[in-house]
Design a binder for these strands. Structure first.
Lengths: 329, 329
DNA sequence: AAACTTTTTGAGAGCGCTCTCAGTGTCTCT
DNA sequence: AGAGACACTGAGAGCGCTCTCAAAAAGTTT
């Protein structure tokens, strides 16, 4: 149960602690003979350096915190964005030798936990995922002076990687317009998130440029909110002939509402989503959507954080998008 | 940038380090006057104890590793199971005051990383998620003697929480039989996973009891494998009238293949899935499936690990399931 | 009031590692 | 051969915290 220490290895190898430390840390100024001795002792004892001692001595750590602003439980727990982002970020950071500590920050108390944890020096940097506009966390973390990035633009002006939400929405709406649709509605994401606001803006401005009016239902990026939003839209304006859902999950919900209401897609109502998650390929009919791979965005965010560690300035990155036409529009 | 230390707080408050330590750790044997002094100093300085120093001194840590056996990248990254499990586990562990360190362990090198990390004493316990049968990781970790649990039964005999895979599959097939289906196929999960094997066993045995023969396609729990599996099944036995997919994701893939082949669900072919993920409610038609909430299973797994810390024996837990009938069968 | 208990406080020795600095040994140059 | 340059090794002082143990203070008992 008790693991061997560096001193034990030194004793076993008959050399000083310093030499063992050098070998273990891959320094080159060690005689091959000593190196050999140490390596053998390490292997025989199964020595692995104690992480706490090391980071106490070096005042460094190789862990980063990935903070996901989790809604108070109840909302969809099978969010593909969560999965894609966390997985990709982990992969990239791990291959750079960093450990990922995942923290959910929905409530005030969990936010306090996060702050304490970061302040305790457990991590070298922080990544923020899916922050809502009003969240006080970014600001208080920023005050501590750690390298920090955001997945998706957030308030507070920290380095981020995002896609062109406004532009993507605009492309979606313009496509609908080009197809001859005249009453185009939208289902938005939660309006306290900048991505939602931007997508709504893209929708609104594109429509306004052609003199058409907006028809808006507010959702929260979940399937069920897309379903409910669509039902409400249908009630508000039974004559609508297209809908732009601010993400694919809500588009899936909308599709179901449309099906239940007996509307044919795309004949009666065209549907366009956003994100191009894998599920978009499996809907009936397959979903036309704006593609902007979350995996790429996540990887870029991780790399941005990594670059901060080497002193880079942290210039924001905007990922490209493109329209993927399938059968729903 | 430099954070205040315990000694700084002691100096500021005019008391000894010991007293500060006592107050910070909530010991009750401190005079109110001193406690007050310390608390004020802590607040004024914004003191937060250094985690590395603390865990070096106490030889303890409040972090646990959640190890997900991630397939070498390329497979579906929006796995709802990943999302539900990681999220739920984080929530439960965090509210018990534990930190979650997420580690992906797909390749041999990442497995080594995991071993080193655990051996370095960074964590108090380990949770294994979605282990494949041949994975050597559980055994080597077990040798280190840390509390350890598995989400889903795995080889190696460690404490686990699972659902009744065999029984669930059996219920699904029996339901299909009761509906008068006669040629019932299945699409399996990856056969190196015990859950897949068990679901296949449940399917096989139930069918065999009624003298019918199995029609099997091998999948890997992804949508695309369900799609391809279904196409192959259709080719192998065009007269099949039902399919049991070993999870909902593959059922969704199968639904698409069926649609493209012009088969009507459930009229021509009935489909039953497994898991009852949220997406099952949004397919066309909505999916009949075996419900066994992953969130509950994940929470139970986290609690099992927590119980191990208090010396409990770690008795395996089997979660209940039930058939949810919708329109696909 | 003396003797004894109990409670509270402070001193300081680690926890396991890194890293500076001094010491020893080896080479090169004149 | 002696001086200086260079390469390698070892000693030991921290890193910031906890926790044991002894000292001091306060409270009890006879």
């Amino acid at each position: 149960m008790k693991r061997p220490t560096l001193a034990a290895v030194a004793a076993r190898a008959g050399v000083s602690k310093s030499s063992v430390s050098r070998v273990v840390n891959g320094e080159t100024t060690v005689t091959p003979a000593i190196r050999e001795l140490v390596i053998r002792a390490v292997r025989e004892l199964g020595y692995v350096p104690n992480g706490a001692a090391r980071s106490l001595a070096t005042q460094r750590t190789n862990a980063v915190a990935v903070i996901v602003s989790d809604p108070p439980k109840g909302l969809s727990s099978d969010d593909p964005m969560f999965s894609a982002v966390v997985r990709t970020v982990s992969r990239v950071l791990e291959s750079a030798g960093m450990q990922v500590t995942l923290m959910l920050a929905g409530s005030a108390e969990s936010r306090l936990r996060v702050e304490q944890f970061v302040a305790a020096g457990h991590v070298a940097g922080v990544m923020l995922v899916s922050m809502h506009g009003a969240d006080p966390l970014p600001a208080s973390l920023a005050r501590m002076g750690f390298p920090m990035v955001a997945f998706g633009r957030s308030s507070g002006g920290l380095p981020y990687v995002d896609n062109d939400n406004t532009g993507g929405a605009s492309v979606a709406v313009r496509y609908l317009l080009d197809q001859g649709r005249r009453r185009i509605a939208t289902i938005t994401g939660p309006l306290d998130m900048i991505a939602s606001q931007d997508r709504l803006t893209g929708y609104r401005e594109t429509l306004r440029d052609t003199g058409r009016r907006s028809i808006v239902a507010i959702g929260d990026f979940t399937r069920v909110s897309g379903y409910e939003g669509m039902r409400q839209l249908l009630e508000d304006d039974p004559a609508l002939d297209a809908v732009f859902a601010a993400n694919d999950l809500m588009a899936i919900g909308a599709l179901r509402a449309l099906r239940e209401a007996g509307r044919r897609v795309p004949d009666d109502v065209a549907v366009v989503g956003f994100d191009d998650i894998e599920a978009a390929l499996y809907t009936a009919p397959p979903l036309t959507t704006i593609r902007s791979p979350m995996e790429d965005q996540a990887a870029a965010t991780a790399e941005l954080l990594l670059s901060l560690f080497t002193g880079a300035p942290g210039t924001p990155v905007i990922m490209p998008h493109r329209l993927v036409v399938r059968e729903s529009a």
